[in-house]
């Protein structure tokens, strides 16, 4: 406790009471609501964009948003990781991207200020989903050979398999979902704590003391970091989606 500065315990920062349902399994809190809003918003964008095409084929307003999302997934993620034959993955990766992006962006929405992904629930859920999907994809495209290719990479002298196979097993089947979830979760949690830190500093300096002259410094930093966190939200959504694409792509193509 310095200058009356008290950092709140982390439960106060990331755990939110339910609007209804309390601690029961159906309790809806800020986090769950942000997921619902992300879902409704994304669907609304695409429905609104899709219904406008009957009038005119030239995109305007919301259609531009919808189309740039599709274009971005197509050229920025699928072409780079799976290849043009993976265009049918677009709806899945698109919903992944928008879901992660919008729940991330709640980090900087005034009055809300809580990224949905700063709780382990969504990242873990999505990571396990991606893990399951790339396993199923691998088995569908390569059969049992998928595990053979993944665990015994071709072109390695056989004594090295004692070393390579456990590493490949851990890195492919255990570390992938874990790091996918932890990357998103820890980034958003760290950003959230960073913003809270500067909020607490600014608040602590809002006093009639001589050291109140330092107030602008943390406040300017807070503004800059808010901009930075918006960028991080986009970047993490992009990275989560492109890693999902990389994993799916590596399941669809045999060689490493």
């Amino acid at each position: 406790m310095i200058f009356g500065l008290e950092f709140p315990p982390i439960e106060k920062l990331v755990e939110w009471p339910s609007f209804f349902g309390g601690d029961a399994w159906y309790g809806l809190n800020k986090i769950g609501l942000s997921a619902l809003i992300a879902m409704v918003l994304t669907i609304a964008i695409y429905l609104a964009a899709g219904s406008k095409y009957k009038k005119r084929l030239v995109p305007t307003g919301i259609q531009t948003v919808a189309e740039s999302g599709i274009e971005f997934i197509d050229s920025g993620i699928i072409d780079q990781t799976i290849g043009p034959e993976g265009r049918s993955w677009n709806p899945f990766l698109l919903s992944l991207f928008f879901f992660v992006l919008i729940t991330n962006l709640f980090e900087v929405v005034p009055g809300w200020q809580m990224p949905g992904n700063a709780r382990m629930a969504f990242p873990a859920l999505l990571a396990i989903l991606v893990w399951f999907i790339f396993l199923v994809t691998g088995i569908r495209y390569q059969g049992a050979g998928y595990f053979k290719n993944a665990l015994f990479p071709p072109g390695v002298p056989w004594p090295l398999y004692f070393l390579v196979t456990p590493i490949e097993f851990v890195s492919t089947f255990l570390v992938r979902p874990f790091s996918l979830a932890v990357r998103l979760f820890a980034n958003m949690l760290a950003g959230h704590i960073l913003l809270v830190t500067f909020v607490v500093l600014s608040e602590a300096l809002w006093i009639k003391q001589w050291y109140a002259v330092f107030l602008p410094l943390p406040f300017i930093m807070l503004v800059l970091l808010t901009g930075f966190e918006i960028m991080v939200s986009f970047l993490q959504a992009y990275i989560f989606t492109i890693l999902a694409g990389v994993y799916i792509g590596s399941s669809m193509h045999a060689e490493h």
């Binding site: 159906y26 809806l28 809190n29 769950g32 609501l33 619902l36």
Partner: peptide, 10 residues
């Protein structure tokens, strides 16, 4: 509860 709502939404 967050997993449930997240799963439903997604």
């Amino acid at each position: 509860n967050e997993i449930i709502w997240g799963a439903i939404s997604f």
